[in-house]
């Protein structure tokens, strides 16, 4: 309704508002460097910051109603709206923290975090290597593969499915992360114990989702396979596994976040002197909060990339699915 009415606002007007916001933002950030301004002109700074926020918000709001004809432009618009929202958040964070001189320990400004990331790349890289490439990847692969294998078994034997599925569903509600200290006790301080935690955390989502996915193919299609005289494995590989792909990828996506969390939390219970969880807990103890935020930023980035890669593979594999083809699922 309102979308129709507003679509007459040309896109350039919203873009002009955003551009104006950028100019004011640059001015505010520039003046923040002088301590006199921070001390005396809090009101002016705040007003300008709010102006930036309002302009960007208005620009984005009207831009969201813009309906470009080409899908590429539409996607560009969505990306632009999301990106500018994030940038405005970062800008407000920076300005408010510096204007009101929020204690560094409580919340460092994003610029300080950026500087810290740039200056400690070797440490961050070593931590990422230890936590992500050793613990997370190993555990993720083992957990997902074994969950998948057990799901196939459960699919083959009805009894196993009836017994395992309720247990698997229940386990998903349990605080599995609590096994971390036990795994550290069993497998030692190095990455093996973290991989074990990740394995346990990723096993059950994979099991439950794959079993659910294997029932996703329709009765008609299964009957068709039967009329072709295809055996269990043939119909599994040619019909039921492809049909289960969206479910399996869903599990892979859920697991990508779980794996990261599992590995980092497991490191709180003891690790060698490298790793993201180790760094976070020790730097908190030394009150180097900017380093902690740097690790968080890196973790969030890697988590998003991990997720994005899986989503890309999913688009390639399930090209036939309505949600990928652009229809309504």
């Amino acid at each position: 309704m309102s979308a129709q009415a507003n679509s007459t606002i040309p896109a350039w007007r919203s873009l002009a508002a955003v551009a104006l916001a950028v100019v004011i933002a640059a001015f505010v950030l520039h003046t923040l460097d002088s301590s006199a301004f921070v001390a005396e002109r809090k009101g002016a700074g705040l007003t300008l910051a709010v102006a930036v926020w309002f302009l960007a918000w208005w620009g984005n709001a009207s831009l969201s109603y813009w309906r470009p004809k080409s899908p590429l432009l539409a996607r560009l618009r969505d990306g632009f709206v999301a990106l500018s929202f994030g940038l405005v958040l970062l800008f407000l964070w920076e300005v408010l923290v510096r204007l009101f001189e929020v204690p560094f320990i409580l919340l460092p400004p994003p610029s300080a975090i950026g500087v810290r990331i740039a200056s400690s790349i070797p440490i961050l890289a070593a931590d990422v290597y230890q936590t992500i490439f050793k613990a997370v990847l190993a555990g993720y692969l083992i957990g997902c593969c074994s969950g998948f294998a057990v799901a196939i078994l459960a699919d083959r034997f009805l009894f196993l499915r009836r017994g395992l599925l309720p247990i698997g569903n229940m386990v998903s509600a349990l605080p599995i992360i609590g096994v971390a200290p036990i795994m550290v006790m069993w497998f030692g301080f190095d990455w093996q114990s973290k991989a074990a935690v990740v394995t346990i955390m990723t096993f059950f989502p994979m099991l439950v989702n794959t079993v659910a996915g294997l029932t996703a193919s329709g009765q008609m299609e299964r009957d068709l396979m039967r009329t072709y005289a295809s055996g269990y494995w043939q119909s599994l590989f040619k019909l039921r596994l492809p049909a289960a792909a969206p479910f399996i990828f869903n599990a892979l996506k859920i697991n990508s976040t779980l794996a990261l969390i599992g590995a980092i939390v497991a490191e709180f219970f003891g690790t060698p002197v490298v790793g993201m969880g180790f760094r976070i807990s020790t730097e908190v103890g030394r009150m180097n909060i900017d380093m902690v935020w740097a690790e968080i930023a890196v973790a969030a980035l890697i988590g998003s990339v991990f997720y994005g890669v899986i989503a890309l593979i999913e688009r390639g594999v399930t090209f036939w699915h309505p949600s990928v083809r652009g229809g309504q699922a």
Binding site: N60, Y65, A82, F85, G86, I261, I264, G277, I296, G303
Partner: peptide, 23 residues
């Protein structure tokens, strides 16, 4: 609000990529 949908939703999803348990 459609603008909230476009602007907020991606960031809500991004917010969950921060391993909050880890911090």
């Amino acid at each position: 609000f459609i603008s909230l949908d476009r602007s907020l939703m991606p960031w809500i999803i991004a917010s969950q990529t921060i391993p909050i348990l880890a911090i």
